[in-house]
Every structure is written in structure tokens, then in C-alpha cells.
Nucleic acid binder design. Sequence first.
DNA 1: TTGTAGGCGTTATCAG
DNA 2: CTGATAACGCCTACAA
Lengths: 337, 337
Amino acid sequence: MPRDPPSKRVTLEEVGRVAGVSRATVSRVVNGVASVDEAIREVVEQAIAATGYQPNLAARSLVTRRADAIALVLPGESRILGDPFFGQVVTGVTSVLDPLGIHLVLMTTKTGTRDQVITDLRRGRLDGVILLHTDGDYSLPEQLVGSHLPVVLSSRPPRPLPITYVDVNQSAGAALAAEHLARLGRRKLATISGPLDTSAGQDRLAGFHERAAELGHPEKICVEGDFTRESGMAAAERLLGEHPDIDGLFIASDLMAHGAFPVLRRHGRRVPDDIAVVGFDDSSAALSCDPPLTTVRQPVEDMGAEMARQLLRQIAEPDTPVTTVVFEPTLVVRRSA
Amino acid sequence: MPRDPPSKRVTLEEVGRVAGVSRATVSRVVNGVASVDEAIREVVEQAIAATGYQPNLAARSLVTRRADAIALVLPGESRILGDPFFGQVVTGVTSVLDPLGIHLVLMTTKTGTRDQVITDLRRGRLDGVILLHTDGDYSLPEQLVGSHLPVVLSSRPPRPLPITYVDVNQSAGAALAAEHLARLGRRKLATISGPLDTSAGQDRLAGFHERAAELGHPEKICVEGDFTRESGMAAAERLLGEHPDIDGLFIASDLMAHGAFPVLRRHGRRVPDDIAVVGFDDSSAALSCDPPLTTVRQPVEDMGAEMARQLLRQIAEPDTPVTTVVFEPTLVVRRSA
DNA sequence: TTGTAGGCGTTATCAG
DNA sequence: CTGATAACGCCTACAA
């Protein structure tokens, strides 16, 4: 077991004493300021090593006015924590935050915590926030932009709002699904949509129906889900009951597809023979479907990284104009369609 | 949209000026110190409201030597983010942290980030850490205890270590599974274990075999998984190949069971008729199994809350003795066994 | 290039 | 019970 290191509570002052220089010079070395004599830098670095000096980040934060921490805010009681989507976002976000030593703070907005986000921002404990999957309630993002606080959304807000967001071209992705099913010669198409109070839910539905209509499938058959596995099961059940003859199905999230598959099987439908299925996300759930799910891929990690970058930019330059970044989805063909 | 609030950058000094008192008194009011004249408190509170004062937490942190932030550390590249287990832990942890205004920082220990945890602790940016599911490598916890830094583990370390941890009685839980399968009159029992380099994996395996043997099932049939859904699929495949006649199966995590079910079905086994299955965790995955999974429940949210409490105690009283808290599991009977 | 010194906003110790 | 005043540890002009 490693020994207790000697680190008591070393300050710049003490390191300076050891190195025979002022604390200002030590500070410059610590922060990598160029204008430091090479020989002196050498000596100071040795003193730093010898003393086990660690800068006190609170003190630094007090003068730099930076917390070097941002929050990832999840809506409500957040079942999203169990969604593979979440993990990918985190991976993407941390890939840009980690090298900069910026903390990622996890927060949820269950009642009584929503204001906490703004409070922490004002108290200088948080430099900015990434809002994930905000459902119906947009009061928080509105308040944030109203106060000129750095914020990035993970998808387009349902109603226009002067706010920076990163999204995938949802309708284009859904169109890919429609095209694929049509190309396969399927006759009767249907969809299990996401929650229609979210832009992702709306756009995937609209994009699918629109392109399907253009390709000669004007009929709009749809059951609404909420992106969870459970809702996928329920929706599939209902869909087969009401429209037993569908042979092409677009399910607006892999997780819902994962829930739907066993239901299809129980109803005697073989995938893809009797019914071709296309999902959305290309999350890990797609691979654990049986058969593996053909799905619309959104580059979630890249999107997460981009959200982080956009946020850091806003923090660095508060008057940066509102930006929207839209990634293009691709179709990943596997065995389900 | 809410207006820009007047908050410029109000300090204790300015609030004091408005209220006609010193900043010291304002500070006392802010921190709820009892010895403040009621009338004065009143005036000060009005001044606080009028000015929109928000305490600067960096300044406070500088003098209190508290970051009011702890980290939740995940091992490696962490597929665990997609595990329902993780979400429950977070819910439990935040339930005690949120009311105290303590931040939960998410960190992973991919190479190059492991030292970051200790560095942040030493730099006063983190008050303590909760280590989740540390796999094989225990160098971090060892270093942490070696440096007397506040830390709590989410399960018993494989090798003894003077460290506080919270766990469920793993072997007792596995024993519950064995008893249930035996009571059902199953003749040939088997198990899909967790990774055997973790104490959870080891204990569930040992607990199962031990109790099974006591109940007249001395045969030890086991395939090792790693708690992921994918590994559950692979393990089930192998198990059926090598031992086609098993009729009672204990799977050491719900997620693996969820992966195994489709495999069992594909091999023509009906659950529970041909083969009874018991899982472990009682996570959301148990309910999305078909049929719903009989499983060993561990109170993960409670455990998460307890980890947070233990950590806070260590932070408040650094010389608090090492503690271990063990929760008792229960069997949740559904339809799979 | 280096050192001096002021200030960041709080908390905490003492007198009063 | 209240008010000065001294830290807390760092960054950053400014001067040398």
C-alpha cells in the first residue's frame, strides 16, 4: 500500500521559498507562462516536485471566476439514466472535458432542484449546463437564455427559442427508414413513434410519413410510445391488434424495438420475413435484438462532444451568437429489414 | 421569457451597506447563525432579496476547505452507464446529496484519469469519492485509503482492505435462488455467474453452489459471464450446448437473464415449464423479460443513499473507523420460476 | 524576466 | 450581539 505522501498544505509561497523565488514566479511556472527563464523554471519545477505542491482550486477559482465545472442536466426523475443513449452522451462529453480538467456534474430536475441549476450558475459553482432531452417543460431553458447563462440543448426545442443546440437531422433519418422499407417492397407500413411532445418524436414521425407518402404509402398508421422499452412492448401489442396486416415497421428508438420484438414473435410474426423492422439510434440495444436490428444511426458520442465544445465556447465568449449543429444520420443495415 | 435579473455581482459588503450593517452580520444571517437580533435579521434578509445577493461559493470554499462536491467513479470505459443498476445508485446518492447542495461529479477511470481523482481530492476540488463496481484493479482504492482520503466502495473488495463499503449479502441472495429452485423440485441446477474477479461474482456463485449442495444438488455447473446482456446470451448458448438437460437456472444478473431468454426460446425451452430461471438485482430488466423474471432483489437505491451517508460522515469526521454496511436481499417471485 | 502588492469574497477570531 | 480585521491561496497588473 502506498505511503502517506508528505503533502501537508503547500502554498505557492512555500514553493517559492524552497526555490528561492517569489510566489509570482512559481505561479507562472504552474500555469505554463512562457516568459520564465529556463533555468529558473527548472529549479521551480524541482521545488514543486519536492514539496508535493498542489494548487488550491478554490483560490484559483475565486480570482479566475471559473468553476471549471459544467452540469449535465437530466429531466424529471429520469428513466434516461438507463438508456444506452445517456452513456454515449457522457462518453462524448467527457472526451472533451477530461483533457481540460473540467468537472461534469450530474443533476436532475425533479421538483425543487430545477432552480438549483440556476443558483449554482449564479454562485459561480457551475460555468454552464448541457440540457438533455428536456421533455415538455421548457421553463428552465427559457430562464437560462433569458439570463444569458451558457447553455446547450441536446435537441431542437419544440417551440423556437434563441438557444444553441446540437441535434441529428431527425426527419432525414426517419426518411431513410421509410425508403429502406419501401425499397424492400413492403406494402403496408406503420410506425411506433416517440413521445409527441418532443421534437425528436415529432420529427421522426413526420419525416417517416412524409417520405413514405412520396413513395406511394400515404396511409398514416402510428402508435405513440415514449422511447422506453416498456412502451415499445405496449405499442407493438396495440399495433398488431389494430392492424394485423402490416409488413413494414419503423420504430422510433432501438429500445422500443427491443421491447417490441418479443411481442411480434409471440404474435407469430417472423422478422424480417413477415414484418421488416427498422429502428432508430443504433445503440447497444440494436445489437441485442433478435435478429439484430437494422436501424438509423445517430453519432451520439460525436454529438455529445460537440455539445461540450459549444458550451465551452459560450463560456469563453459569452456574446457568441446562438448556434445550431445538425449531424446527418446514416442507415445501418442488419438483419431485421 | 423571464427578464434579466438585476444581479450584477453583489458581495456581502454591498448587502451590508444596503442594510446598514457590517458584512460580518450579513454573513451570519446567510449562514443562519443563531445569535443575530431578530429585527436586524429581518432588515438584512430584505437587503439580500433586494440586491439579489448570491454567495460566491469559491470564496467560501477557500476558507471552509470544503468543495461540497463528491465524485462517483466508474471503472474503465464503463459499459456500466447503460446498466439500470447505475441509475438506481445515482437516484439513491442524489437523494441525500441534493438537500445538502452537494455536487455529484461523474468520473471514469480510463487510463490517465485514475490519478485525476486523487489530484482533485488533494486540490480541494472534491471532498470524497464513491467507487462503483471496481473491477480487478484495486490500486485506486488502495491509494485512497493509504492517503486517508474519504472513500466508500459499492461492494466488498476481493482482498481484505481497511476500507468502508456498502454491500448486499450476496451469498445469502444466491442461496435464496438455490432454495427456490430446489423447492420447485428442479433436478439439475446450473448457474451463469458474474465475473469471477469481482466479489459479487464470486459470492453469488459460492452462495448458490453451497446452498444447492446442502439441498441435495452437489453438481457444480457454471458458465461465467460479465453481467452484461451480451455475455448472458453467449453463456446461455454455451450452457445449453454442454448441458442440454438442466431444468433450473440461476443467472447472476437480470441483464444477463434478459439476454439469455431469447436464446433459451430459440433452443425450444419454455420458461418456466422446461427450465426455471431466477435472476439477481430486480432491476428494470427483470420486468422486461418474457416471462417476467423471478429474481433476488437488492435495495440499490437504499444502498446508494447509504454510501453517500457513509462518505459524508467520513468527510465530517476524518478519523471515523472503517465501516461496512450489509443489506439483506429478498426474493421477488414472478413468472419465470 | 522577476518581484511587489493588491484584490477576489468569505469565514472566523476578537474586541467592544 | 455586532464590527473590525486577519486569514484563505491564488492571479495579475505594475514597477523594477
